[in-house]
Each structure stands twice: as C-alpha cells, then as structure tokens.
Amino acid sequence: MPSKTKKNNTERSMHSLWIVSSAAIVLAIISMFVAVSAVMYAAQQKTVQATTSVVQPNFGSTLAGIDTPLNSTDLAVINNASDVYFQTAGEMYLNGSLSDPIFTSNNKVAPFMVNGKPSVIYLGSITCIFCGENRWAMALALSKFGKFSQLFTGYSSFGDGDVPTLYWAADNYNSSGDSVKNYYSSSYVNFVSIEDINPIRGGFLLNSPSKIIQDLNATENKSAIGAFNYIINLSAVKATAFMGTPYTIWGTHQFSGADAEVFGNTTPSGSVIDLTYMTHAQVFSQLSQPQDQFAWSEYAAADIYIASLCQSLNNTVQVCSLPAIRSIEARIA
C-alpha cells in the first residue's frame, strides 16, 4: 500500500511538473513573440527618426496645413522638375537599384477621348493611403505633359496612415461627396480626376457607385460622368475590373492600383510607415533635389506613367525622347 501511495505521489509530482513546464514554455514563446516584435518596432522607429530630420508631434493624427495651396516654390518642384531626375530614376529602376516595389503591369484599353485628346483618368479617394502616396508620382508625370496652376496639401485618412499628399483641389475633408475639380491644363492630354471624399479623421471609406454617379451628375461635368461610366464598363471584364483605389488610365494603359509602393525611405513592415512622419516641406525638399530612396522611387514611379502616355501619344512630347523612358516603354508594352 505505502509503495502505491508513494507511486501516486510521484505521478502527481511529475504531473504538476509537466503542467508548470508547459505553462512556462507557452509563456516563454509568447514573450519571445512580443520581444521580437518590440525590437523590430523599435528598430523601425529608429530608422524612421534617423531618416527624417524633424519628427513632428501628433503624427498619425495631423492635418496641419490641409487644403493649403502650394506656394510658388513648391509648385515649381512639381511643374519644373528636371528631365535629369526622371532619366536618372529611370536608369535606377531599370538596373534594379531601387528597393521599393515599382510595377509596370497594366492593361491595354481604348483611349478615352475628350476634345480630340486622350485622357488621364484618376479614380481615387482622399482617405486612401495608396492614392495618397501615388499622387506625388502622378503629379510629377503629368507635369511633363502640361502644368498645374494650383495643387493643395493633403493627407490620407487617420486610419490609413495619415500620409502627406497632394490634393487636386481644396476638398471638403469633413463630409462625404465626390470632387472632379483640378487645375491642370495640357495641349496633349485631358486630366479627369474623380476624387471620392469622406471624413478624413476616419479610415478608408469609398462611396457606393450609385452615390458617386449621383455626385457626378450634380457637377454636370460631362467628362467626369463619361469617364466614370467608362470605368464601370471596363469593370465588367476581369482584367480591367475595379479592384480598389487608385484606379488610373493613362491614355491606352489602365493600372489597377498604384504603380509603386513608396512609403518613405524604408519599406514598411507592419503598421510603421516612414512617410507618415514626413512633413510636406520634407517631401518637397527631397523631390527638389533627389538623393534618397523616397525621391528616386517617386520619380521612377512617374516614369512608368510617363512611358504609358508617351506610347499613347506616339512619343510626340519632348520627355518621350529620354532613353530611360524609351526603355520603360518596351517593358510596359
């Protein structure tokens, strides 16, 4: 009997030991998980702070200067960007020097003609982070075919990175609607911008197609109404279907999504986004004299759009003669 009691006690001790060991192992693994992510987060934060000269307070929830028209200096950074920057960035993209994802995948579509000119059509949202980062490249690309008389400082929504961006017009960022206004003029292309608007302090939100149509009809802008119906027709085909914002058409090339993911000088991993911590002044400073990953990648992303338009216009514009643009045209074809 005593030996059986002793055996029971031993069994119970072993049982308890297993339980304690198991619990310890589980806690250790969870702690390791948390520790690794904390280290990675801290490293990313450090990299972010090292690459931005000034860290502003309340980043991730700032609307400082929203809807402010660009001053002449900042507007010139967009309108008068040197061809050298586009050429250099294009070379870097072609030889694989850029670490940011930049894509050429697109679909051939019939051009949307207005007044005898092909169009650049943009359907996006002020709340969307991908639209936010892509407008920099779009503005640079469009500047090679025309000029902006005005652009405005903007942000993506608080729930979508709050990244500094450009707005095509001074949008009412506290309401729901759709804006078709922009201040672009060109003798080569039309720029039809359909900017979906929802409260910027929330997350990404896109109005339903019926609401968008209703808003566009209220503007009586025939180009925008026609462009949106064109997108709806294209969405009946899987290849060109709307799969999120931004949705752009550059002459005869349709892009589903942004053509690049340029979120600062580090590639984001998780919820830390370098671009969130930049001010508009820092962005313009980098674009005016490109020397870092962010600036070169934005110019390279612009090159993709430029090459698309050049193909659509049979290379009749000066920028189309850049060797890098010619090489990129071969890729997007």
Partner: peptide, 30 residues
Amino acid sequence: CGCSFSLLASILLFLGINTFEAAGIISFIG
C-alpha cells in the same frame, strides 16, 4: 487597407459579383 482589396475582389469576381458594386461594402467592412 480597405482600398486595395485585390484578393477579396478576385474572390467576389469568381463568385460573379461585380466588385464595383461591392466596393462600398468592402470599404465599409475595412
């Protein structure tokens, strides 16, 4: 980001649902 719902859109298209019509719902879910 709810703005880039390519995977979900692929599934919806496979099911025969027009993603444009579903875009508002998708962004609401997001």
